[in-house]
């Protein structure tokens, strides 16, 4: 079990709850179970089965570096999902472009 703090964008779907108690031995299981509790949560957190770039998962007091395999040690372990912004290079969540399209490409560099 872990205390998962609901990111603001998911709070509406979570019925306004700020935190929920979610079972799971590791972060992956917690996210899977969170999805059952709050549909859409996994899409918000994961991309191609991994934590989204630009997103930091805090397990305990610090951003996890073990990713989805991070073991959840006890029921009081807190989990937060925050915009991973340490150095400005990046960004918060969810940047996308409306119409993915090719740039004018006359010739592929490696081709």
């Amino acid at each position: 079990m872990a205390r998962v703090f609901i990111p603001q964008p998911l709070r509406k779907r979570a019925g306004g709850r700020i935190e929920v108690q979610i079972p799971g031995k590791n972060l992956r299981e917690v996210i899977e179970n969170l999805e059952k509790e709050i549909p859409g949560a996994a899409e918000y957190i994961l991309k191609d089965g991994e934590l989204k770039p630009g997103l930091a998962a805090i397990v305990g007091e610090q951003a996890t570096r073990q990713g989805l395999l991070h073991k959840i040690e006890d029921d009081e372990t807190e989990i937060h999902f925050l915009p991973a912004i340490a150095g400005g290079q990046s960004s918060a969540l969810g940047y996308a472009v409306r119409r993915p399209r090719r740039l004018h490409c006359v010739r592929n560099v490696s081709g």
């Binding site: 991973a84 290079q89 990046s90 472009v97 090719r102 740039l103 490409c105 592929n108 560099v109």
Partner: peptide, 16 residues
């Protein structure tokens, strides 16, 4: 002269 770059966010360690 540049290839069409991928529209994807990639983790750079400190940021993406």
């Amino acid at each position: 002269d540049f290839p069409a770059a991928e529209d994807t966010l990639v983790d750079l360690g400190e940021g993406a």
